[in-house]
Design a protein around this nucleic acid. Structure first.
Lengths: 358, 358
DNA sequence: ATGGCGTATGGTAGCGTTAACACGTCGTTG
DNA sequence: CAACGACGTGTTAACGCTACCATACGCCAT
């Protein structure tokens, strides 16, 4: 119940900033006093040195150094309603693809005085939503999300607070704000058509399962569907025995290979949804003395540096992992800067890289 | 110059919060009004639901949902002088070891309502210092640093603002605050001693060079020195032709192998400072039909999943990458919680893993 | 009754910064 | 030579929240 209790007598002067309390970080005002200027001038000297007279700037710099003043972004953010914080969510950082994308962001953000809030969703939409909420609570200047399928709340939150947003690693006609990536469907389609062109007829597909929940996701699904479409368009029958799945690691790649060979001994090519699994399978073939691609052709997805180092070198789909991150950050920054000319949808494409394994 | 300019006439009432301005995010007060309570009660319901009556909490929850209220951590941090932000700096995220450590942090932090500010220093002390400064400007509740050697300012800043700090991935007797890791010196020493015990006499060492500056760092140096010490303690001569270095990638691993074989054809074992380079060398041997370990033994460092998948499986030093991150976060949180019983220095040790390559 | 205690809630001030405006000085211009 | 703009700096009032104290009420032990 709301109880209105008018104060009886004047409250004691409320001083939180007790003189004998915990030592506090220096404030702008103390720097100002030492430099003989007002706080606002110090603030300006720190954020936009150009508009403060050279001599004043020098005195301020000395005072800052002497006192050991460190800015308080929280207070600044509150007063200006602006931050230099960017939030980014990836499903995992154990996949070199996402690591490389983050590396790409850094190439752009690092030079721009932005800070990076990192969220790892473990492929969970609930977790992603929680992270977005945290980013908004920090009043992040922008948000970068992996993929183009998110919980409904995510979209509502982001558009509601009008936060510049980039979705990367996939494409959609209806992005939350901006989107940059490639078509997983088209990429898988292209690879399977490529394998057909090389003469393979019994082409298997292996879906990587991910996260602690061992699910697939929209990106994996798109790839599988692209593969199926390519088979149909090539008048090849679709046999469910030519589909397998497994955890995204070397061991499961090897296991998927064995499972497929067991179910369909005449399988002549296997298209793995991820390079890591393909490399695992390649190693297994080598152990067993199976000739690749003679006994079975193997293709991957992602063009990680593994693919050139394994024997035989892996045929795979190259995607612009680093560029995806770099460009995503660039787009976001332009959007934050208020540039309205930013393209909404950027397709970075992909390349089918033919090597020795097919 | 400080000019005192007393205001002539009363300033116009200053309203930033113009009614026709940009739409603003909802405030606590609006939620409070709708729920018929005071702002402070809403604040409590959000941060510590237990102390608010169930019924009140319900009304508040409904109001929050209806208005679409999102907390403002900046204002909260300013008022309470506390944050739930942890800053972490790694030299790179392209190394699976650091990725796994970050993954480890997440296992601890994610459940604890903390947010992660990520900094990538690219092995630069200047950049590390800049990042620490940024974290402090955010008033991070704690900071995690890679390695135990930092610029002098870093230590001063961190101790000056009394921020709980964990250094990981190395050990020192004089940590900034806490430190958790293993001895790079001892680990390399142990591996070289192991190789000597296996009968190898001409044991080479390859230092990975890192960052855009292509330098080594304290960790690499420690490993190299550990190796040298092991040679001395084994009465083996130290030949500078048995040392090489190269960029931390597959190709450079292969190149270092060839360089060493060229300089000293009788080299019988090569200890790579990193698994990735060792794997690259292994691939090269395979390409050339060189028997490992018959022609030359190869050992790595890090026990990445590569090491079990290559042929022959790689002898390496296992370090607790995931545990290092997880424990680092645990220590930090206890420290933040004010627990004074936290151990200052935690040695996670290492294991020499003998496989087929030596 | 009286006092003490635990639970639930509220008023007020202040956290450290910046936006918005104001003002004084100087050199330029009509 | 007044008007004007550019420049450098200052005053004031927020920004949205939480710490600190205070209050109101019910309950139980004196």
């Amino acid at each position: 119940m709301a109880r209105k209790a008018p104060p009886r007598r004047p409250l004691r002067k409320h001083k939180r900033n007790g003189e004998a309390g915990t030592p506090r970080a220096a404030r702008l005002e103390e720097v100002a006093r030492m430099a003989g200027v007002s706080p606002i001038t110090v603030s300006r000297a720190l954020r936009n040195p150009g508009i403060v007279a050279e001599e004043t700037r020098g005195r301020i710099a000395r005072a800052v150094k002497k006192i050991g003043y460190v800015r308080n972004f929280n207070a600044g953010a509150l007063a200006s309603r602006k931050t230099t914080t960017i939030g980014i969510i990836v499903p995992t950082i154990m996949d070199i693809g996402f690591s490389e994308a983050i590396h790409g962001f850094y190439d752009t953000l690092g030079e721009q005085e932005y800070q990076l809030l990192l969220g790892v969703s473990d492929y969970s939409e609930e977790e992603e939503e929680r992270l977005v909420r945290d980013f908004l609570a920090h009043r992040a200047a922008g948000v970068i999300l992996t993929g183009v399928s998110h919980g409904p709340e995510v979209r509502r939150l982001l558009t509601g607070m009008a936060v510049p947003t980039v979705e990367f690693w996939g494409l959609t006609q209806n992005p939350i704000d901006l989107c940059i990536g490639f078509s997983n469907f088209d990429a898988a389609y292209a690879m399977t058509r490529h394998l057909v062109r090389l003469g393979y007829k019994k082409i298997a597909f292996v879906s990587p399962l991910i996260g602690s929940a061992m699910r697939d996701n929209d990106r994996t699904r798109d790839r599988r569907e692209g593969h199926r479409k390519a088979l149909r368009d090539s008048s090849l029958s679709i046999d469910e025995n030519l589909f397998a799945s497994g955890r995204l690691d070397f061991q499961s790649g090897a296991a998927a290979l064995l499972e497929l060979v067991e179910k369909r001994p005449d399988v002549d090519a296997i298209f793995f949804g991820n390079d890591v699994m393909a490399a695992g399978a390649l190693m297994e073939c080598q152990k067993r003395g199976w000739q690749v691609p003679k006994k079975v052709a193997i293709a991957g997805f992602g063009d990680s540096d593994l693919s050139t180092i394994v024997q035989p070198a892996l045929t795979t789909v190259r995607i612009q992992r680093h560029a995806m991150g770099k460009r995503a950050a660039e787009l976001l920054l332009e959007r934050i800067a208020g540039n309205t000319q930013v393209p909404k949808i950027v397709d970075l494409g992909f390349d089918v890289i033919q090597r020795e394994s097919t």
